[in-house]
Write a protein that binds this DNA or RNA. Structure first.
Lengths: 139, 139
DNA sequence: AGAAATTTGTCCGTATGTATC
DNA sequence: AGATACATACGGACAAATTTC
């Protein structure tokens, strides 16, 4: 038997109710929504219906869902600064061999070496600096 | 940030990134990987996820883990017999930051840095020298 | 030698994503 | 619609091995 819905589907009614609670301050920004199973029992709806409701809020950018954590109320401020996955900055330069490197490469001090530097940042701060040295002229 | 795993779960992406660093020489054979907690903060993932990523590399025989010690990059076994590259000699030492490195890490000159040097020989001659710099104390 | 700090090993509980029946 | 199972993911807690002071 199909579920009768007066005017609007069940998932939308649930979404509206949740939105009222969010905008009314019952569920403040940054807070977790009740879990899906909690909403399921509260609204006496299936989990799929509850998820449909949450999907509406997510599309409206009212909440954000994190896998394994739950669904958060987004803060109104939405600068969206996700600068993750910073690629390392690399740079080449040619340097004369100092005594230590010259001894390693078995060349005269001052011999041209190629230094390649890679800087990996973590949250903006420098985490790892890698320097690779090669002889400019290969044997 | 929503964390759906479209196609690729998080732990596999982390494993891929670490493998890139290993094969790219950023983390040379014999060197220790960053600790699990360091990787946790770098990738903003839980420790369990980081451990899953490392487990992948361990299964692929790329690294080996020792209890209480850390995870090492395994020295690659001869994939070819004519490969005359010997295993790189690695070495750790603690050095004070010179002005250039101090500026990079945004610390005072003289701050303790860990320098890890890996020397790869080709036919007995030094071919590549890789130096990795990290802050002694993080977090 | 001993204590503290570090780092990995293991287990628990909770929650979402996906797939199947 | 509902139920179940499994994979993914987070967080906390404690134990065990190792390193550092």
């Amino acid at each position: 038997m199909p579920t009768p819905h007066y005017g609007q589907p069940r998932y939308r009614a649930i979404a509206d109710e949740l939105r009222r609670r969010i905008e009314g301050g019952t569920i403040p920004p940054g807070a977790l929504l009740p879990t899906e199973s909690a909403l399921t029992s509260e609204f006496k709806a299936s989990r799929g219906t509850v998820r449909q409701a949450i999907a509406l809020l997510r599309e409206a950018d009212v909440v954000a869902t994190e896998h394994g954590r739950g669904t958060y109320v987004k803060t109104r401020r939405n600068e969206h600064e996700s600068n993750r996955e910073a690629q390392p900055e690399t740079r080449h330069r040619q340097i004369p061999a100092n005594p230590e490197l010259a001894a390693l490469f078995a060349v005269d001090v001052g011999t041209a070496l190629v230094e390649q530097q890679s800087v990996t940042r973590i949250d903006g701060a420098v985490g790892i600096v890698v320097r690779t040295y090669r002889l400019l002229r290969t044997r």
